[in-house]
Each structure stands twice: as C-alpha cells, then as structure tokens.
Design a protein around this nucleic acid. Sequence first.
DNA 1: AACTCGGGGGA
DNA 2: TCCCCAGAGTT
Length: 350
Amino acid sequence: METYKQNPDFLNIGRKLLDWYSVYGRDLPFRKTKNPYKIWICEVVFQQTRIAQGMSHYLNFIERFPDIKSLADASTDDVLLHWKGLGYYSRAMNIHKAAKQIVEEFNGEFPSEYRDILKLKGIGKYTAAAVSSICFGGDYPAIDGNFYRVISRLFADDYDISKSTAFQYFSEISMKIIPENRMGDFNQAMMDLGSEICKPKNPVCIICPVNEDCLAFSTGKTNLFPVKNKKTEVKDLSLTYYFVSFEDKFLIRRRGTDFIWKNLYEFPVSVPEAWEQYIAKHTNVKHKLTHRNLNIDIYTVNLPHQNLFEDFASEGDFIISSFEESQSKSFPKPLENYIKHSAVGEASFH
DNA sequence: AACTCGGGGGA
DNA sequence: TCCCCAGAGTT
C-alpha cells in the first residue's frame, strides 16, 4: 500500500505531534533528565512492559544502582533481586553485562555514538535510537509498538508489523514526517500519543492532534490497524517442585541459563522415593504467562532429622535458606507467592 | 526469518 | 479469553 506517499504535508504532522507533546506529554521521572544511564535503564525496564507495571522497579533500580559503576560492581543476585517479578529476566543480566562493558570498553562513560551504543548487550535498534536521540541528539527514530500503531493508522498502511522487515519499512516512512533536530522529543511524543491517545483498543481519536491527517480515522478503520498476522501459540507446561523444609529452613537452588526464569532460584524438582512418607501437603498452582499456561505441583516435605536435610542439600548442591535470606534472592512469581504464603513465610512475619 | 523469553492489565 | 506493552538475543 502506497497511500502515505500521497499525503500532502508530512512535516506538518511531525510539528503537530511536537506541539501536542510540549503541552500534553506525560510527566514521568525519567523525562527530567538526559542522563544516558537513567534513560538506558528506563528504556530497558519498559521493553514490553507498561509504565504502571515497571515504574516501581525502575525507581528502586536507580536508587540501588545510581550510576554505571555501582551497577558494574554489583552481584548477579543483587541485580536480579531488583528485577524480581518484572519478567524477561535476561534483560537484567544484559544490563549488568553492559555496565561492565561500558567500564571496560568505554572507560566507564556511556558511549555517545549510535554505533557504539548498539554494541552494548541488551541494546537493540530501538533502545539505541531512544538513548541516542534523547541524550545525544542522534537522528534515529525509536521504532516500537507505539510507532508501528501510530504510523500504520495515520496512513492506513496494512504492512504486517510482525514481519522482521517492518522496522526498516516504518523507519523509512517515519523519516518523512520528523522535523529536523527534534528526534528525541519526537520519539517521546510518539510514545505518549500511542499510550494516551492512539491506544491499541478504543483510541481517543476525538482529541488526537493529528486526527485530521489520519486516514484510518477518516475512514473509520482504526480498529483494522496495525496489521499483525503472526499468532503466538499458547502451550501448557507442567512443573513439579518439592518444598523441602526442616524447622524454619528450606532448600533452594539457582536455575540454569536455559529455558525460562534464567538464573532465578527455585525449589528441588525431585526427592528420594523413600521420602514419600514425609510429604505432608500438595498444592497445585496455576499461573498464566504470555505464551504458556503453567501448572505447578508443589509438595511439602517436612523432614524429621536435620542430617537428612543437610545430606540432601550438599549432595544436590542446594542452598539451605531461611525466609529472610530468600527475600534477597529472585524467584519466579509463582514460587515467590508460594514462599510468601507458606508456613515458613508466615512464621517469619510474627 | 522464526522462535523464545514474564508478567500484568484492559476489554 | 485474547491481545498488547518504551524489544532483544539466538538459531
């Protein structure tokens, strides 16, 4: 579809968006700074994450790790702890690695060139463009979900945004409507318009600053854009855990770097058959993720002797943890919830 | 180019 | 239920 090429005034659309942003832009904590470290962290926190959901994590993260060096010097557990419950945990590991990368390769100073920013672990085209444009005046459009939606509706463009070529496609279109030297503000204007006005469902077109220019609106077809053909399959996943405890301690172990919940902690996934007699309770936890329906069985194992507990721990390389100690580690959400509501957890509250 | 990685919220 | 959210890494 070539409709957008017939639009009479691309630049005027960009100016309207900037004017709207200067008045109605959201007042967010990271809007008051051009500190590339803070902009970087916020961009990664809010990848595939709503502002309301990630805000407390962002604030806590920045408070605990106020600069690149403090992050580079931190432990894996400490970094993951501040990412606890946020999901997509490789983001935290990548941020940690990138901080070390900046210390080693860029003398501890956040790189100012787009190409250098792009070299950092966990920073892709979108985040590099956002940091570059907001902090260093780089001329790169930050093409994200908001961007796809706004542009595809403006020009009623049915290009499939789930295709890997969509980034390049929408990048070229967007360059036609962006005023010179205002890329940072423009990128943030797109984010706010997409979040507040041009929402995925029920967009508030009546107060949109560019509704006169929007082909999807004028034809009453905003619900048809953007076009996204790829459908994600939801799979079932069953897990079994054993909450092995003795007095107020229980066993935990760090997960591997494969599959889900990379580097987070979990309970033992098996116990000796002879321990059948010590299984006291069975809890079934159902947990929904984006691409998975989780079905988790958790068996409570109360051991009668401390030596059984300690032998099993040392053989299986488990950590004997108290409730308090577990609070300094990052668990998958359903296991976190289980610990919180377990007898061990409740006992520790009193 | 397709697949994988969490969790929460809105409709 | 289904879809989406300030996407990136791996294969």
